[in-house]
């Protein structure tokens, strides 16, 4: 009884800490002028989300999150920021433009909709993969098995998509020979 309480208290502490840091870092991210600072704060947000995935007993997705998001995608973004030598955005702090007004209004409407949806809670058919069963089989093993049986067609489509993305990125980023001189 006491041991169970301790583990739940610990879960709450980790959850509240990471959630707070994630929200704070993302608010700082959209307000920093320097894009490199934004990129580093976004990496912090992604790491906090990975901790939340661990709390939801999904170690496979948490590790993929760190590898793909915080590793690969953010490295690409930081590289491009360094490549482009961006000038700082010239924004006067007092001017509230039309787009900012529209932005705040839209965000409030989305917030209203999302909070109605959130307090409905998780409803729907209960599946067969309880956390105990998944942890017994291994998270990666269950995902791999489903990926090659039920989700085979989307998996193949994703492989074609990634192939097209590679070709598209090379074609776009290649310097045309006529532009050189």
């Amino acid at each position: 009884m006491f041991a169970q309480n301790i583990s739940i208290v610990f879960q709450w502490l980790v959850f509240l800490g990471t959630a707070f840091v994630a929200i704070l870092a993302s608010i700082l991210m959209i307000t920093r002028k320097n894009p490199i600072h934004s990129a580093l704060l976004l990496i912090l947000t992604f790491l906090c989300t990975a901790v939340l995935f661990f709390l939801l007993q999904n170690p496979f997705i948490a590790i993929i999150q760190i590898l793909v998001y915080a590793g690969a995608i953010m490295m690409l973004i930081v590289f491009v920021i360094m490549l482009l030598e961006l000038e700082e955005e010239l924004v006067s702090p007092l001017k509230i433009s039309f787009s900012k007004g529209v932005g705040v209004l839209t965000a409030l409407l989305i917030m209203l909709g999302l909070f109605f949806a959130v307090f409905g809670g998780a409803r729907g058919a209960i599946g067969e993969y309880t956390p105990e069963k998944v942890s017994q089989l291994g998270s990666a093993k269950v995902v791999g098995k489903l990926l090659f049986t039920d989700y085979l067609l989307p998996f193949e489509i994703v492989s074609i998509l990634l192939m097209a993305a590679i070709v598209g990125a090379i074609v776009l980023a290649k310097q045309r020979p006529s532009e050189k001189e």
């Binding site: 994630a22 959209i30 529209v102 839209t106 965000a107």
Partner: peptide, 19 residues
């Protein structure tokens, strides 16, 4: 939901393409 809203505000208010 809060992270989504913060992202939406960022898309609508910032003008730097990378951000």
């Amino acid at each position: 939901a809060m992270l989504f809203i913060i992202g939406a505000v960022g898309v609508l208010t910032r003008r730097n393409g990378i951000v």
